[in-house]
Design a protein around this nucleic acid. Structure first.
Lengths: 197, 197
DNA sequence: CCCAGCCTACCGTATGGTTGGTAGGCAGCT
DNA sequence: AGCTGCCTACCAACCATACGGTAGGCTGGG
């Protein structure tokens, strides 16, 4: 029973994903972790703290993963390609957590909510900068950056809702399909397929 | 206090949207409807019945709205344009309900769940048919129909999460941006802008 | 006089959270 | 080595509250 806090968190992720935050009770989490309900309060002082812990680490990891992926990539088209692939890969690898992050924000108090939304906004801004720069350089079509960034991000995010690791397509294929679709949609001049990274 | 059932339903939509299904109690709904909790059970025999009523009418209306919009539209490119506009318009007009339909399916028993998912699948199939036909005719790029249909549908669906009726852009503008983006992404040959709806 | 539509009052149960405690490890002192 | 004191990790039992749902009764229009 070493690292009980980690086990509690993992069970909570599993249950919040399957049943939702409000439908999951502390007893549910306790039972699944092989611990008593009261003992959870040794590691987390409120139910909300478990949710917040899950959300904050997920978002921080997501941002870090994007920054790492983009490191050293200069050309704007490639930056968008990398950003899309990074986003989708993370959402496939951390399916449960990102789905919680997308649907259970209501379980947070105002303060914690703000701190999560601030991170989400910072993440979105990175995509918006890339798209803006692409338009500025005349590579991407003139369009509404905010709206298109939402379109791109949400379509990539919701891959997490239907992606099945043992399904028909591996995540690499999905990443490729999305990447091509978005770039086709945005680029001013479309090469005949010689752009696949 | 005429049409109390309607008032209950409207209040439930409001609360399920704001707080979520499990976080909303029957007393909450009662209070907001100016009725006693027990009186709700005269109109709905279980809490779940309220949710199911909301979901089923929303989905049926959505399907009907798409069918009406597509009626008489023959050309495949225009069919996709119309379908996208119809989908987004509905999701802007019925924001609360579609968001409930997208996130509160866990509140349903197996039987009701199946009945909702069946309708959703039927709706998705209509989009997939159009895209498939477009590829068949050589108008759309060769791609994975299932994946692209999910991409298109989810990006249009999530407009409901951020759309603000009194915000910067009216829904007509958003519909247009999405329509162009998707068609650019899919079309083999891209006219220089002479294709506007 | 019936009954839809509503009410007050109540039920059993489950919830998030608290209390007060125990078992055992480990550090520091003598 | 032996003792003391503290700390982490855990637990059984408990608490007030709120939940979904029920029982049974009142009332006014057809």
């Amino acid at each position: 029973m070493i690292h009980m806090k980690k086990r509690i968190k993992e069970k909570a992720i599993d249950l919040f994903y399957k049943k939702g935050y409000f439908a999951t009770s502390m007893s549910n989490i306790a039972l699944g972790s092989g611990i008593q309900k009261a003992s959870i309060y040794h590691h987390y002082s409120r139910k909300e703290d478990i949710l917040f812990d899950i959300l904050i680490t997920t978002l921080d990891d997501l941002i870090e993963y994007l920054d790492d992926s983009l490191y050293g990539v200069k050309e704007v088209e490639n930056r968008l390609r990398v950003a899309i692939r990074s986003h989708i890969k993370f959402h496939c690898d951390r399916q449960k957590e990102v789905l919680i992050a997308d649907s259970e924000l209501r379980g947070l108090t105002a303060k914690n909510y703000k701190s999560i939304v601030a991170r989400r906004d910072a993440y979105e801004a990175k995509f918006q900068e890339i798209i803006q720069e692409g338009i500025h350089q005349g590579i991407f079509l003139e369009t509404d950056v905010k709206v298109i960034s939402y379109a791109v991000l949400t379509m990539c995010t919701t891959v997490a809702t239907w992606f099945n690791p043992s399904g028909r397509l591996p995540k690499e294929d999905i990443m490729h399909i999305y990447e091509e679709f978005v770039l086709n949609g945005l680029k001013v001049e479309r090469g005949r397929r010689e752009n696949g990274q």
